[in-house]
Design a protein around this nucleic acid. Structure first.
Length: 284
DNA sequence: ATGGCTGTTATCCG
DNA sequence: CCGGATAACAGCCA
């Protein structure tokens, strides 16, 4: 359940493994993630192409390729809640929830997704309506302020809207609001200049920190791991991550706030579990 | 075992 | 237009 940092770490993992590889064969096992495309069209479009590289836009991985004709194209992959994308040996058995695979001459790039909320598509339209990249210079305090202005929604809800700023999901939005000392329930449009500045800073901080941690830990595609979450709070990963940063509020209901000693609370907001400190997130 | 949770987001409805 | 609820789906945990 990847948010921007997990997707970025995966991109960096795959970056040296794709360029120059030719797609010998393509397999499609689930068509829903291809929407609006079809299995036949996907196979026809990808078979024989040469992969050129991998980028990221928001929570999408963008895999570039050139066709035998010389035309360039892109494959857009979104991991949804449960998507995994990895290179394995072509001899490996396909996973139960395999959606698509590409044979790369001895290796195989596999996309699997149990819940099928993810995407595997050639439709560039998926990038329409996306807001600014939070770690790019274009994401200024003014841009964030404009995205919050006039909204009566809770600030948490606004930040999950990918047209305001991309990359935040339920975990990092909770973490960013804690870092900023803002209540998730504060009306987005009611935040003052200072609060917006703190929030802007906090969003960058939590995402950068998570990428840094993920870079150090590397990915684990072993059994029982989704190959993505290195920043979690479960006991096993806690061991592996000892000494690393942990979530400050997410999944810490009832525990003590590391900043003020208050109690972390969990409430429902828009149907999502929302974690915050009752002591130091009172603004709004 | 049954029901309630889960990292996303498209779509529906008032 | 907005905001809230629901649905898409499978697995895990109490």
């Amino acid at each position: 359940m990847p948010e921007l940092p997990e997707v970025e770490i995966l991109r960096r993992h795959l970056a040296p493994r794709l360029p120059g590889r030719r797609v010998r064969e393509v397999g499609i096992l689930q068509s829903r993630p291809l929407r609006p495309g079809t299995a036949d069209a996907m196979k026809a479009a990808l078979t024989g192409v040469e992969l050129t590289g991998i980028g990221r836009r928001a929570k999408y991985l963008v895999i570039g390729f050139t066709c035998p004709t010389g035309d360039a194209g892109c494959l857009y992959v979104h991991l949804g809640m449960t998507g995994r994308l990895y290179v394995t040996s072509a001899g490996q058995r396909l996973p139960r929830h395999a959606v698509a695979w590409m044979e790369l001459g001895g290796d195989r790039l596999v996309f699997e997704d149990a819940r099928r909320f993810g995407r595997f598509t050639l439709d560039a339209g998926v990038l329409d309506d996306l807001g600014p990249e939070p770690l790019d210079e274009e994401f200024t305090v003014e841009v964030l302020a404009a995205g919050l202005k006039g909204s009566r929604s809770p600030v948490k809800t606004r930040l999950l809207d990918q047209s305001v700023v991309v990359g935040l999901g339920n975990i990092y939005v909770c973490e960013a609001l804690h870092w900023a000392g803002l209540s998730p329930f504060a009306r987005a449009g009611s935040l003052g200049q200072e609060a917006v500045e703190r929030l802007h800073q906090a969003i960058r901080k939590v995402l950068e920190e998570a990428i840094e941690v993920g870079q150090k830990l590397g990915l684990d595609f072993g059994a029982g791991s989704d190959g993505l979450f290195y920043f979690g709070s479960d006991a096993t990963r806690g061991e592996a991550a000892s000494g690393m940063e942990r979530f400050r509020v997410y999944d810490r209901e009832g525990q003590e706030c590391v900043r003020c000693g208050g109690v972390i609370r969990r409430e429902d907001l828009g149907g999502r579990g929302t974690y915050f400190c009752g002591g130091c997130q009172r603004v709004g």
